[in-house]
Structure formats: C-alpha cells, structure tokens
C-alpha cells in the first residue's frame, strides 16, 4: 500500500487553462505521493495532456497552484520544471532527429569540459552506461536518432527522463508506439522506478494497462475531473463508465 499520510510529492490544485475561450482544463485537482503511479485517463481531448503540460512547463496554467513537496512551485517553462526534478516523456518523444542518442539525452544539460566546450566523449560514455541498464541491445550510439526503431527512440526518451535523478516522472502514452516485448520492458521500468520512490503520472488509453500498473486512476472528461479512484476498488468496467459517461461508479460515489 502507498503511504498517503505525509506530504504529497505533487499537488495540482484547481488548475484551469483556456485556449481562446475553450476551457481545456477546468478546475482540476490531482495529487501524487512518492512511490505512487497515478494514471490519467480520458478520451482524446479530455485535457489529460494539457493538464500535465502545465506541470512539465510546456504550457502555463491560467489559474490554480502547483505544489511540489508541499511548497508552491513556479513553473513557467520546461527548464523550471526540470529544476524541480520533474521529467517528462512526451508522446512525440521530443527528440531532435538529426542528433545522436547522447546529444539528445543531454540536450539542454550538456556535459562540458574545463574550457566550457561540450564533452561528447563523456556524454557518450554516460549514455552507454544508462542504455546498458535500460536497453542492453542498444548499439547505435553514433547514428542520428532518426535512424533508430520506435522502441530504440523510446528508450532514448526514457533514458533522458530517468538519467537526471527525476523525482516526478510524467509519461505521456509511453507504450503507444511499442511492440509487446518493449511494452513489457516499460512496465518493468515503471515498477522499478516506483520502488525507488519516484512519483509517476502515466497517461494512457489502455484501461487494462492502467489497472495493472497504477495505484490510482484520475479520469477526465471535457476538461473536468470526473474523479480519482483506487484501481483496486473498481473494475475495468467502472473505469470505462467513468471515461464514457463521466460519472463516478455508484458504490464509490457515496
């Protein structure tokens, strides 16, 4: 069981964000504890990605507050989010296709030598170390990442998120482009990271995967939060009903 008595790792309180009059996120509150995986579910356009981008710094919220370890966090851009050890694996992976794995892994946080020039050899050595852990089959260290397969690209994006001592990990449909074997690898990684005490937000469409991997599931519809439930207390049908009908199951509503 997750110990939820202490201070949450992340609190998103009453977050709202509009795009040209359309409320993409409407007064949503979700929290996340250390060692916990919270699934974010909902239809396309329900506002899951938008909500999470407020935390990763890609968007700026209009209203509400973000607390990290109980303290109000000011996140105005992705650099700020990284400063709070919030790392994100985007659905698009956000890799620069023309650069190699090491350059992507360290993009924005390059290792430099004594005179301030980027130290490619050191970065490649670090990349080889972490890839050896995450994906031992990975060998293409000198090719641009566009030459890699979907799974290899995904592992570069994951390596980038976990290399820098993340405390909070946001995964936006991390298995969407992967085969069964690689999906299993990501599932194992999630279990390993939560044991280390990371908090993970997992955006996914697959209700079964969420039930298997997550501790709690937060369901959104039309920008608003339908409810957050303990996955062990509900069936997949209950979660599906929340996604489709936008109502909390009756046995939990009380």
């Amino acid at each position: 069981m997750i110990d939820r008595s202490g201070t949450p790792l992340v609190e998103l309180n009453n977050i709202s964000l509009s795009f040209g009059g359309v409320k993409a996120v409407d007064d949503v509150s979700v929290d996340l504890y250390p060692g916990e995986v919270v699934g974010l579910l909902g239809h396309n356009g329900a506002g899951k990605s938008t909500l999470i981008k407020c935390l990763s710094g890609a968007y700026q919220k209009d209203e509400g507050e973000i607390r990290i370890n109980g303290e109000v966090a000011k996140i105005n851009n992705p650099r700020d989010a990284r400063g709070y050890n919030v790392e994100t694996i985007y659905q698009t992976l956000a890799l620069a296709d023309n650069l190699d794995a090491a350059s992507n892994l360290f993009l924005g946080r390059e290792l430099v030598n004594a005179v301030g020039l980027v130290d490619d050899a050191a970065m490649e050595a670090e990349t080889r170390k972490i890839m050896g852990r995450l994906n031992p089959n990975f060998q293409k260290f000198s090719s641009p990442v566009k030459a890699l397969s979907g799974g290899q690209r995904q592992s570069v994006a994951i390596a980038r998120a976990v290399y820098f001592n993340a405390k909070v990990l946001i995964m936006d449909e991390p298995t969407a482009a992967l085969g069964p074997q690689e999906t299993q690898m990501v599932a194992e990684l999630i279990q390993e990271l939560r044991k280390q005490g990371l908090g993970i937000f997992l955006i996914d469409h697959d209700v079964h995967a969420v039930k298997e991997l997550c501790d709690r599931a937060a369901v959104m519809k039309n920008g608003a939060l339908v409810g957050t439930v303990d996955v062990d207390a509900v069936s997949t049908d209950d979660i599906l009903a929340m996604i489709i009908a936008g109502k909390k199951p009756e046995h939990l509503a009380a």
Partner: peptide, 16 residues
Amino acid sequence: IFATGGNPDAAELSGI
C-alpha cells in the same frame, strides 16, 4: 542551433 533545426519543439521542451 542544430537541435532547434532538427526539431524546434523538442528544443523548446528541453529548456532551450
């Protein structure tokens, strides 16, 4: 410069 040319969004999301 090269990262931005390869994928401007990725560069932005990497804090550049």
